[in-house]
Amino acid sequence: MSTAPLPLRYEGDGEFRVTSRMWAARADKSFVVGETYDMVEHHDRSTASHNHYFAALKSGFDSLPDHLRDEYPTVEHLRKKALIRKGYCSHSDHVCASKAEAQRLRAFIKPMDEYAIVEAVECVVRVYTAKSQKMKAMGNRDFQQSKSDVLDFLDDLLGVERGQTARSEAA
């Protein structure tokens, strides 16, 4: 199947048509006549929204007070830890035989991913890793929601009104 979305124009009465001969040729290579395919609407991520997000993150990072610099030494640390804190992450639990073993395992795992959040809770080591926001990894809807949630996290961290960091980069 084709990796690029196939542009279709709705003609009415349930009919869709490819938008050019090139796309018709691609459809002929990718699909079988008479087969049924599930279609979903695809929305490209706005480059402007993407750029605004990273500019707002940089602006917010530049406003971080000194006491938060150890936890967030770079913009990337801030972004990934915010994603984790807002639930855009995967996590795994590693059960240990004792609290001491859990602390040793935490110390061993922590340097493997400088952006991960690694916690020892009793005899369990929890590892949280941020989801990727790359265009191929996160669709438009999820990106927009994660962008909003991360910028809200940043506003809360800075102690400013929600939306202020995003607005400061909109102008």
Rank of each mutant, 00 (worst) to 15 (best):
M1Q: 11
P5A: 11
L6A: 13
P7W: 12
P7T: 14
G12L: 03
G14Y: 01
E15K: 14
R17C: 05
T19A: 13
T19N: 09
M22I: 13
W23E: 07
W23S: 04
A24W: 04
A24S: 14
D28S: 12
F31R: 04
F31M: 08
E35L: 12
T36L: 10
E41F: 10
H43W: 12
D44C: 04
S46K: 06
S46G: 03
T47P: 09
N51M: 07
A55C: 05
L57N: 09
S59M: 11
S59K: 10
S59H: 11
G60I: 10
S63F: 05
D66E: 01
D66G: 00
D70N: 04
D70Q: 06
P73Q: 09
E76N: 08
L83Y: 00
L83P: 01
I84R: 00
K86E: 15
C89V: 03
H94C: 02
K99H: 11
A100R: 03
R104L: 10
A107I: 14
A107N: 15
F108R: 12
I109L: 03
I109M: 00
M112S: 05
E114V: 08
A116N: 01
I117Y: 01
R126G: 03
S132A: 08
M138V: 09
F143C: 07
Q144S: 12
K147W: 01
S148C: 08
D149W: 14
V150W: 12
L158G: 00
V160P: 00
G163I: 06
R167N: 15
S168Q: 07
E169S: 15
